[in-house]
Computed example of a mutant assay.
Amino acid sequence: MRSIYFISHPDVVISPLVPITHWPLSERGRARMAAALSQPWVPGISAVYCSTEQKAIDGAQILAEHRGLAPTQVAALGENDRSSTGYLPLAEFETVADAFFAQPGQSVRGWETAAHAQARIVAAVASIAEADTSAGALGIVSHGAVGTLLYCHLTGQPISRRWDQPANGGGNYFTVQWGPQPQALSWWLPIDGVAPAP
């Protein structure tokens, strides 16, 4: 058995003029990721993985450098593919995201389906856990929607936005106990220790 900390990247610089996958962490996001370094589980991390999206890379570098490590990028850890629409204004995005979770087997406006994204993230985490040869816990810096899909899988819950991370700008984590029957030990918790607003 080993521990995996699945971390959603914190706050980003949102720009309609920049591809979503290239959005970096904002100053607040970087500050929150730096605050995460005081979490009691950080000293036990022996390897850091992230998606190939800039916001996840930025977060992973902060965590990895603190541990004297270099993050490993894994494309399959990416967020659900939303390239068909690109940037959407917040209200429109929330509506499409609701449909994404509510209709997991259907593509909403060309987005990757939730069912496909779930299978992808579960397989990616399993592959990392099985291949990693370091001795400690693993830190995976990824994204909120696929993290929620992973959580649903690990807890035996049907895909539902009910289990999505709190609306606090991202920057949340849950702990996975990996073994023959992997399980999530908690729902999303804030990386900086600040409880999200109700």
Rank of each mutant, 00 (worst) to 15 (best):
A167L: 12
N172L: 09
I191F: 03
V122L: 11
I159K: 00
S142K: 05
G170A: 12
A145M: 11
S127M: 08
L154Y: 00
P190H: 10
S107N: 02
S134I: 09
V194N: 15
G169V: 12
Q165T: 04
I191H: 01
G139H: 05
A123V: 10
A135H: 11
G144K: 02
S186M: 08
A119W: 01
A131F: 05
Q165C: 02
A114I: 09
L154K: 01
G105H: 12
L138H: 03
I191T: 07
G169Q: 11
H153C: 09
P166V: 09
G110L: 06
L149D: 03
A115C: 14
Q103C: 11
T148F: 01
S107I: 05
Q118I: 08
A119K: 15
H153V: 05
P104Y: 06
W178S: 04
A124F: 01
I128Q: 09
A131N: 14
Q103E: 15
T113N: 08
L154I: 06
L189F: 03
I159C: 02
P182Y: 07
A102D: 15
Q183E: 14
A131E: 15
W188I: 04
Y173W: 14
A115T: 14
A184S: 12
A135T: 13
Q181F: 01
H153N: 15
H116A: 15
A119N: 13
C152I: 12
Y151C: 07
S107W: 01
A167I: 06
C152H: 05
A131L: 09
Q165S: 09
I121R: 00
L138P: 01
V108Y: 00
A145K: 00
N172V: 09
A114F: 03
W163K: 00
N172T: 14
D164W: 04
V146A: 01
S186W: 02
H143Q: 14
P190V: 10
A184G: 06
S134P: 04
H153A: 15
L149R: 00
P182W: 07
T113K: 09
N172E: 15
V125E: 03
R109T: 11
G139R: 01
A137C: 08
Y173P: 01
R109N: 13
G110S: 08
A123W: 03
G147M: 06
V176C: 06
G144Y: 00
A137E: 10
L154P: 00
S107E: 06
V141P: 01
G193L: 15
D132S: 07
T133P: 00
A114M: 02
Q103M: 12
I191L: 14
G156C: 09
W187Q: 14
G156D: 12
Q183H: 13
V146C: 02
G144H: 03
